[in-house]
């Protein structure tokens, strides 16, 4: 048996990409053993623990100029894959469009990690406990993936293939995440962690759209309660056409608790995580609706 306990990486080769096309070329040329590194906050610890067999690192931090952006459009928000957590946290425009980003980014890791970590890296790591995947699921995002033969756009459902697996092919790169903007909506995110900066015990995001005091659509995304982060269609179906009430949140929470599949670990028991899925779903729906109500009032007054 060969097994080592250590935190020092094995030898690697290192390339620095100058633009997206160059990155794709490098991935093509270097083959299966190459990996992109952006913020490096997941990949490098895994390399140190020798849990990966990466031979080539393709550093895409120079692509920040090309892929680091938040563009707020009338119908769509586009975020470049190299946009750093800190930029997401500090963007007032993004917070206005999707308050869930501010809620989530405040509780993702710590400032040091947020200075380097990127939204693209977070999604491509596809860790079931990762917060931004839940945010993107909640907001019904789609992902732009570029390869040598051009771009394709996939929904979050299709992007996320399971724990640590995505739709991004070997010689492809996630370049952008797109979020539809619909009127009358808001969002919120709640996370329970054992300590600041820890991965979620459980977290829940909610996005709600309303018209005339009635929910027109709603989405809930959960993190750390099983591999399925593809949203909670049952909850959407429950909420559509309803007036938001505590009872409604209660029933939505019960659905979240029932339809997740947490595992027991050092962060919590199955029963507790299920409880949290319900409790945090209720809290995030309540907060999202509260955020809509003042603006609705404002509209009417106008």
């Amino acid at each position: 048996m060969r097994g080592v306990i250590m935190q020092v990486p094995a030898p690697i080769e290192y390339e620095r990409a100058t633009d997206v096309a160059h990155a794709v070329d490098l991935l093509e040329r270097l083959g299966q053993d190459a990996r992109l590194v952006a913020g490096g906050h997941s990949l490098i610890p895994m390399m140190k623990l020798r849990l990966t067999d990466v031979e080539y690192l393709v550093d895409i931090n120079d692509l920040h100029d090309e892929l680091g952006y938040i563009r707020i459009g009338a119908d769509e928000v586009r975020i470049g894959a190299m946009t750093r957590h800190r930029e997401l946290l500090e963007s007032a425009e993004l917070a206005a469009a999707f308050p869930i980003f501010g809620d989530a980014e405040k509780v993702i890791a710590d400032p040091v990690v947020r200075n380097r970590g990127t939204i693209g890296g977070s999604l491509c790591q596809a860790d079931p406990s990762e917060d931004l995947s839940a945010v993107c699921t909640t907001l019904d995002a789609s992902c732009v993936i570029r390869g040598r033969d051009g771009e394709r756009v996939v929904s979050m459902d299709d992007f996320y293939r399971g724990p640590y697996e995505t739709a991004v092919g070997q010689a492809e790169i996630l370049t952008e995440i797109r979020f539809p903007v619909r009127p009358g909506g808001s969002s919120a995110y709640f996370k329970v962690e054992r300590r600041a900066g820890d991965w979620a015990v459980t977290s829940a995001g909610a996005a709600v759209w309303m018209a005339d005091g009635v929910v027109t659509d709603a989405r809930v995304g959960l993190a750390a309660v099983g591999p399925n982060t593809t949203g909670m269609p049952q909850i959407s179906a429950l909420l559509r056409g309803q007036e938001p009430t505590e009872d409604l949140y209660e029933r939505a929470g019960a659905l979240a608790a029932a339809h997740c599949s947490p595992s027991p670990d050092g962060r919590g028991s199955v029963a507790y995580k299920r409880h949290l899925a319900g409790e945090l779903t209720r809290r995030s729906l309540r907060r999202a609706v509260e955020r809509i109500q003042p603006s609705t009032v404002h509209e009417k007054e106008r």
Binding site: M1, R2, V4, I5, M6, V8, A10, P11, R50
Partner: peptide, 27 residues
């Protein structure tokens, strides 16, 4: 778990650890 089984002395800390991966222990 984590008990000391063998040690390697090498010219640098990386090589020392790389060599650990080359030791085959039958448990």
């Amino acid at each position: 778990q984590g008990q000391e089984v063998a040690f390697v002395v090498a010219e640098d800390r990386y090589s020392a650890r790389d060599a650990l991966e080359l030791i085959d222990v039958e448990y």
